[in-house]
Computed example of a mutant assay.
Amino acid sequence: MDVNGYRSDGVGAAVAMVNFWTADEGAAPPTVDAARAMLAPYSFLVRDARAADLGPLADWSAELRRVFEAERLEDAVDLVNGLLDRVSVRPRLVDHGYGLHVHYALPGAAFVDRVRINTAIGLAALLAEYGVERSGVCAEERCERVYADTSRNGRRRFCSDTCANRANVAAHRARKRASAASPSSHAT
């Protein structure tokens, strides 16, 4: 049971933010509208986002990336605890037209603070439930995007089906080349 949505929304937002701000070197700086569109699916009141929020959100995204890059649970826990130390969590039950649910920020908290709290709590829940085995940087060697896998089987290693297919095709072609080049594959 997902009690409050912070795991799914917070983790999804963390993945989206890291990929939005850190994965595409050389991309044009994002606009407020693009940032709003990226964050909207994760239950944020994106109308509150302002141009001044872009820099702090980009910086936070770079810090979130380090969690996804951590290979050891102890390192990831230290990183997430560091994020949690920097947010002011004040849980409250609220109902503003979406049904009764928990908010971890006080009413009127700045947009950046709400995003930071949500993503820090989400990553904490992800680590507590799954450790570091369910998140990371895409296994496709040319990709720098991150992923988090909360599925039942937990076997995801790619950021998208596109990268998984690309890696599978490359592995298949490499096996074919190796097979064609091996002495046992040539007729005698």
Rank of each mutant, 00 (worst) to 15 (best):
F158S: 03
W60D: 09
D149Q: 10
S182K: 05
L93Q: 12
R175S: 07
A51T: 13
A109K: 07
L64E: 09
V137D: 07
T119G: 09
I121K: 05
D2G: 09
S43R: 13
A34W: 01
A174E: 12
A52Y: 02
A13L: 14
T22V: 14
A171N: 05
V77E: 15
N118G: 08
A139E: 08
P183E: 13
P107A: 10
A35V: 11
R65C: 02
G55H: 13
T162L: 12
G5S: 08
E25D: 15
T188W: 08
D85F: 06
K176A: 14
M17A: 15
A110E: 14
D161C: 00
G12N: 08
A62C: 06
L93I: 13
G122S: 15
F111M: 14
D33N: 13
D78T: 10
R47C: 02
A187R: 03
N153Q: 14
A34Y: 00
W60G: 02
T150Y: 00
R36V: 09
L83R: 05
G136S: 11
V89F: 04
A70G: 09
E69Q: 14
G26N: 10
A180L: 14
A124D: 14
A28Y: 01
V77S: 11
A109S: 15
A28H: 10
V46W: 04
A164D: 00
S179Q: 09
S135N: 10
R173E: 06
G136F: 05
G10P: 00
A128E: 15
Y42D: 02
L93M: 15
G122Y: 07
A49K: 00
A148R: 00
G10S: 04
D48I: 00
V112D: 11
R47I: 10
R177V: 12
S184Q: 12
V77I: 15
A148D: 00
D24V: 09
Y42N: 03
G55P: 06
V89S: 13
R134Q: 10
D149L: 08
E69I: 06
D48V: 03
E129H: 00
A27D: 14
C143D: 07
V112W: 06
T31M: 07
G26L: 02
